[in-house]
Design a protein around this nucleic acid. Structure first.
Lengths: 211, 211
DNA sequence: GTCTATAAGTAGATAGAC
DNA sequence: GTCTATCTACTTATAGAC
């Protein structure tokens, strides 16, 4: 019932224009948020009027969904794209992504701002992020299962917690890094945390918090 | 140069009214964000007009700062308040806070939304959150130092990464939990992650990611 | 496909009555 | 201390010319 008209728009010039707009929208929504960013600002950046934007996407709401879905090459944790690594290589891939992201503040900020903003009431991106996290947790849990199988060990029931926690550290460190890049080493801190969590799943230790 | 007039406002009725407004603001900013929430909505909730709000706080901007600073009893990770635990009890305290927060979606959402929104350009809450994270990282790092001293071990240089990572998992898990409470066990996942990170600092293991 | 013009609504803030 | 009234500014979206 909602938005599906892909074929009819194949004119090359038009597609390029749409890409320009989406790129500009990533930057504006990233730096101002979805609510705070305006079509006017996006239009200015791409050199047209806000009416032009609406001609292409119909509404601000629809533009956001396009931004979230259609990020293409420029994405933060490019798991779902292309050939996803699995097993241990997935964890290495996540760490590598963090190091790369340390040089892409713009796109990182867009995801940080939009994902957190999506928890607000009736936010148009809520469904997208809910499904995204569910999917990513599933991929990470699967990687844990593969690693356990390789080593012939039973899958600990901590896999679910660990999968959520890995995504969580990645996101949370990005917030702190964006607020003060000099105080947080995004790559190394992510690497440390993922290693700690993976190790804890594979080699459970008695809780250091026990009294 | 900015905002300091505490003494002159001591009338009991007025103070109570201001508290009502701040409480309402936490709820509205939490559910709609700072940019998305309006003075009108806050005013409705407290039973007055938006002009009344401005009489008390001067501007929306100032009201947000009051919300962030003056949260009093209702706070998410009540570290800086009262007698802060130190050493190992601090980590237990953080875990306990996560379990408690699982029953306070409102205030959790307020902090999630506002902290992420604060990374946007010229956000009035940016300075607050920057200093808050810096302070919290320092407290956690100190707890690590205390624990290391107690055990007579050298302080690993991973303490900095671990401190940021602990705050990060707490924040990141809150986002996933708010988006889908049934998919994430906020308390247990936080407990698992903090245990993993603390253990990794105290008993460093060879990286499981090494090829 | 992009523009101008404008609609229709809402925002935060101010002024002054009560 | 709270209200009404108003201001100015800006938002998304639509209509129609080019």
């Amino acid at each position: 019932m909602a938005g599906q008209r892909r074929q009819p728009r194949s004119r090359p010039e038009t597609l390029a224009r749409r890409r320009d707009i989406v790129d500009a929208a990533v930057e504006i929504f990233g730096s101002k948020g979805f609510t705070g960013g305006t079509l006017q600002e996006i239009a200015d950046q791409v050199g047209m009027t806000h009416a032009g934007i609406l001609h292409h996407f119909g509404s601000k709401h629809a533009l956001l969904l396009e931004v979230l879905t259609h990020r293409d090459e420029t994405d933060v944790a490019d798991l779902e794209e292309q050939h996803i690594p699995d097993g241990m290589p997935l964890f290495r891939h996540l760490v590598r992504t963090a190091f790369i992201n340390a040089h892409r503040a713009g796109i990182v900020q867009a995801y940080v701002v939009l994902s957190a903003e999506s928890v607000t009431d009736d936010h148009p991106g809520r469904d997208f992020f809910q499904k995204r996290y569910e999917s990513l947790r599933g991929e990470i849990a699967h990687a844990f299962a593969v690693v356990c199988a390789e080593r012939g060990i039973d899958e600990p029931e901590t896999i679910g917690y660990a999968s959520a926690a890995i995504l969580a550290v990645m996101d949370g460190l990005q917030v702190q890094w964006l607020l003060d890049p000099s105080a947080v080493d995004l790559g190394r801190a992510t690497e440390f945390a993922i290693e700690a969590i993976v190790d804890s799943v594979l080699s459970p230790a008695p809780s250091p918090l026990a009294e």
